[in-house]
Design a protein around this nucleic acid. Structure first.
Lengths: 337, 337
DNA sequence: GCGGCATTTTGTAGCGCTACAATTTAGTGC
DNA sequence: GCACTAAATTGTAGCGCTACAAAATGCCGC
């Protein structure tokens, strides 16, 4: 590639057309569907593109064609890494159709989901994914296909919903602990929607077997600190507890800390199971048993739902749950006798 | 807000103008500089905007004004959370000037930095930040102000460079361990550029005091697993080691695992210090002493450099190092006698 | 060589917005 | 009320691209 006068304005489709000796329309065609153009012209155009360092203006394309081949993804916080699996899942299903994903976070702490969505909509995204807990009822989509991923509350009217089966995952955790022989079981919960479903599924499955879990922190936070203090409370009030299910891996880490502080050992004295199958859980140092909510699969389904709606605006909104998977590692074992 | 015929095309500036009884130009003015418009018209326009649910088309604005008030940030992998601090730092300095940040990752593993940058450039970003290790020499910027953040290799010609002082951070780790009285010190390194600087700074500071560090994994990876195996090697060959400096927190976690596997205790038997001050390090369970590279400050400087270049294209490229900070927690202590 | 048809190529118009000059309106002093 | 300046408002002309209809070209058999 030759660098032509670096300080000049970027080359346009007209520059390419002139250099290749064809019309701008032809260049546009080459860009969109090279197969429709004769070999001779196609090569001339591609050579000119390379030579000039031409890069089509996304803004102009958007304006002229009124579709961007891109879909917007609103997440809550970059630090909540679950979106990464969601994103990869979406991309795997989207790239083959030529779609891109644009990310925006909702300013953690301020919950500006609508604002983030607006920003994305201003860029003419063809579809919108909300992967953050909507605080108030939002209108969101405003015309473009919208799907809520990973949350169940506050789904805007007309939006698809594709989310992890947190009830099912809670049930899996319960079954795992029951299967190992535990009966005096604690649960560290939190106030969020996901935590509520995990709790419900966990509790229901235990009750089927006649076991009543000791639930802590139902209306509290879900940080490591919360996990720590909840575990302390649990060990104070139910010292015979042999297993703890934490609503997420971070809280499980807190539980590990509290257990260690009591001089107890995991899993010999107490089993611990987390949720999310995060990096934390996978760590060799922690070896945390955890429930993986398969956000990658959620992402794939999100993409499919979006594509379906984009190509056929008459399909109605759907709701689907993705089944999680239990990953057994080193923090769960049979209870001591 | 009234919802007007949801299935119709989105309202344009002309719709707003008609409804407010003014010209499109006036609406545009209200959008850009409300103070320049009389109260009466301004309010009429704003009411119309609200009523119609009007959202300016970013594409049209970009095309017409040829500046987007947005800067592009290329990161390597969303999982490497250091970019979050960088981003927040940038945003804190950018939002007051009305600029937005657009993110793109370079497809982890494939190192498609140029591709990611191209995508951003196609959206007419006014500035570009490369926060990923450039594998080959890239042209990057191609006209727009560019700054490389957090890396020192492969800086494109004409780009600014603002990065963490990894040498300084390594020195801080060394000083900390020396100050505690350690003299038999190991270092878990890696093949990357950042690791090399941390190693160099660490080694230099130790040598000033006549201490020669035992360096492992200089040409290896920087995962938890690498930290684990390197530590095993270290403890095999230098069992008298009393302190270990890991090139990052993840490796430090691996070190903790290996130390525990040997039946040794941290920090009683061995002190461990990491780098990055990640969530991991802050965890109450781990309490890992770590060097914080203050990526937030890097972000602020990146933003300032960019703004300076955008507003005055004649300023030359600059290079600046940001001083890191040591965060002492529970994994470092005086050596046993 | 020529009609008839498929393929390739091109002009024209316009997407929604902003810059800028031109025009209108308001404000001032006398 | 008038000349004059400042402030507010508007019309015009694109920004770079694509859709689409129209035109040009190529290809076939006879």
């Amino acid at each position: 590639m030759t660098l032509h006068s670096p300080k000049t304005r970027r080359p346009t489709i007209y520059d390419v057309a002139k250099q290749a000796g064809v019309s701008p329309s032809l260049v546009s065609l080459v860009l969109q569907n090279p197969a429709r153009v004769s070999d001779k012209r196609r090569e001339a155009v591609q050579a000119a593109i390379l030579d000039l360092g031409y890069r089509p203006s996304r803004a102009a394309t958007t304006l002229a064609s009124s579709r961007t081949k891109s879909i917007g993804l609103v997440i809550d916080d970059y630090r909540n890494l679950w979106f990464v699996d969601l994103l990869r899942g979406m991309e795997s299903a989207l790239t083959e159709h030529g779609y891109q994903v644009m990310l925006a976070d909702s300013r953690p702490g301020e919950n500006r989901i609508q604002e983030a969505a607006d920003g994305l909509l201003a860029m003419h995204v063809d579809g919108l994914v909300i992967a953050a807990e909507p605080s108030a009822s939002m209108l969101a989509g405003a015309g473009v296909p919208t799907v809520v991923a990973g949350w169940r509350a506050g789904v805007p009217a007309g939006a698809d919903l594709i989310t992890n089966d947190d009830d099912g995952g809670g049930g899996m955790a319960a079954s795992h602990l029951l299967g190992l022989g535990h009966t005096r079981i604690g649960h560290l919960s939190g106030s969020g929607g996901a935590a509520a479903h995990r709790r419900a599924g966990f509790q229901a499955r235990l009750q089927e077997s006649g076991v009543e879990p000791r639930i802590v922190g139902e209306s509290g936070g879900t940080s490591e600190e919360d996990g720590y203090t909840s575990t302390c409370w649990l060990l104070d009030h139910h010292p015979d507890t042999t297993a703890i299910f934490a609503a997420n891996d971070t809280m499980a880490l807190g539980a590990l800390g509290a257990i260690r502080a009591r001089g107890l050992t995991v899993p010999a004295d107490i089993s611990v199971i987390g949720y999310d199958n995060s990096t934390l859980a996978k760590s060799r140092y922690l070896e945390l048993t955890s429930v993986d909510n398969r956000s990658d699969l959620v992402g794939v389904d999100v993409a499919k739902a979006l594509l379906a709606r984009i190509h056929d605006s008459t399909v109605g909104p759907q709701r689907r749950l993705i089944e999680p998977a239990l990953v057994v590692r080193g923090t769960t074992a049979r209870p001591a006798l």
